[in-house]
Simulated scan of single mutants.
Amino acid sequence: MEDISYKVPVGASTAELVIKKSRFVAAVGRAATRRDAEDFIESVRDLHPAASHNCYAFVACAPGGTDIGFGDDGEVSGTAGRPMLTLLEHSGIGEVAAVVSRYFGGIKLGPGGLLRAYTDCLRTALGELEIKEHVPVRNGYLVFSYAHENSIRVLFEKSGVTITSVERAEDVRFGFAAPFNIAENLEERIASLTRGKSKFVWT
């Protein structure tokens, strides 16, 4: 089956560069949603209220997704946010947000110099970022008789399915989180195992 896992940040990282008296400070962290990205950007702005510019970019989705964005915060168009986003997209990391804060040192760097400064600072921070593999999951629940509990637990364990809740009454109900790459066939395998005597629902 296709491997749909991807890399995501663990925690955050920072980096700092000084170029012709301008100080550039990069911060990178996880942003699973656009709201997460906005919150991260705002938190970095709060840390650097005196910065001349707080330029940002984010990929708030899996790599290659469309929930992306960037901003130049007054810098020359095309020299900060857009190249930062391109760097994030080429990194292969998903659910990530980045801000590079610039403290102007009095010497203009020119468009090419700005682009290199913002991307070099961000690249350094990405190099310090701890990452992990993330496997998207699909949630659901399963209701079945007590006689099938052990065999279902074994199937879930072998398939990488996590049991998220257990309720016991006349029957057993498992809440679960299944990796997307096995979710398509899971319902069929459960039906075969229980001979159709179970209730399987995606939530």
Results as ranks from 00 to 15, higher is better:
Glu2Gly: 06
His90Ala: 14
Asn181Gly: 01
Arg45Ala: 08
Ala183Glu: 04
Tyr56Glu: 01
Met1Trp: 05
Asn54Cys: 01
Ser165Phe: 05
Ile19Asn: 09
Ala26Phe: 07
Asp72Asn: 07
Lys132Thr: 14
Asp73Ile: 07
Asp73Gly: 04
Ala177Asp: 02
Ala51Met: 05
Val201Leu: 05
Ala57His: 07
Gly110Lys: 05
Ser52Ile: 06
Val96Lys: 01
Ile107Trp: 09
Arg82Ser: 14
Cys55His: 07
Glu188Cys: 03
Ser165Arg: 02
Cys121Thr: 15
His134Glu: 06
Phe70Arg: 01
Leu155Asp: 04
Val59Glu: 01
Phe174Ser: 00
Phe58Glu: 07
Ile41Phe: 03
Ala80Arg: 14
Val96His: 03
Glu42Pro: 00
Leu88Ala: 09
Ser5Cys: 08
His134Trp: 09
Pro9Ile: 05
Asp3Tyr: 04
Ser91Met: 09
Leu17Trp: 09
His148Arg: 10
Ile41Leu: 04
Gly106Tyr: 13
Arg102Cys: 03
Phe40Glu: 06
Pro49Lys: 15
Phe40His: 09
Asn54Met: 00
Val8Leu: 12
Glu167Lys: 12
Arg168Gly: 01
Asp67Gln: 14
Arg116Ala: 10
Glu133Arg: 05
Phe156Glu: 02
Glu133Pro: 00
Asp67Phe: 06
Phe174Tyr: 12
Asp67Pro: 04
Arg123Cys: 08
Lys197Cys: 03
Ser101Gly: 06
Gly69Met: 02
Ile163Val: 15
Arg82Cys: 10
Asp73Lys: 11
Glu42Gln: 14
Arg30Met: 07
Val59Arg: 03
Gly105Tyr: 00
Arg45Pro: 03
Ala125Phe: 09
Arg30Cys: 08
Ile19Val: 13
Ile152Tyr: 01
Glu38Phe: 13
Asn150Pro: 00
Ala12Leu: 04
Gly106Phe: 07
Ala60Ser: 11
Leu155Met: 08
Ala117Thr: 09
Ser151Cys: 02
Gly140Tyr: 08
Gly69Asn: 06
Ile4Tyr: 09
Ser198Glu: 11
Pro83Gly: 09
Val172Arg: 01
Ile68Gly: 08
Leu87Cys: 05
Ala147Glu: 11
Ala31Met: 12
Val25Ala: 10
Ala191Tyr: 12
Ile190Val: 15
Glu95Pro: 08
Val59Pro: 03
Glu75Ser: 12
Met1Asn: 06
Asp120Thr: 10
Leu114Tyr: 12
Gly113Pro: 08
Ile4Leu: 13
Ala60Asn: 03
Gly113Asn: 11
Gly74Trp: 04
Gly69Tyr: 00
Ala27Met: 15
Ile93Asp: 04
Val76Asn: 02
Arg82Lys: 14
Gly29Leu: 10
Ile152His: 07
Gly140Pro: 14
Arg35Asn: 13
Gly113Gln: 09
Thr164Glu: 04
Arg153Glu: 10
His48Phe: 14
Ser198Ile: 06
Tyr118Glu: 08
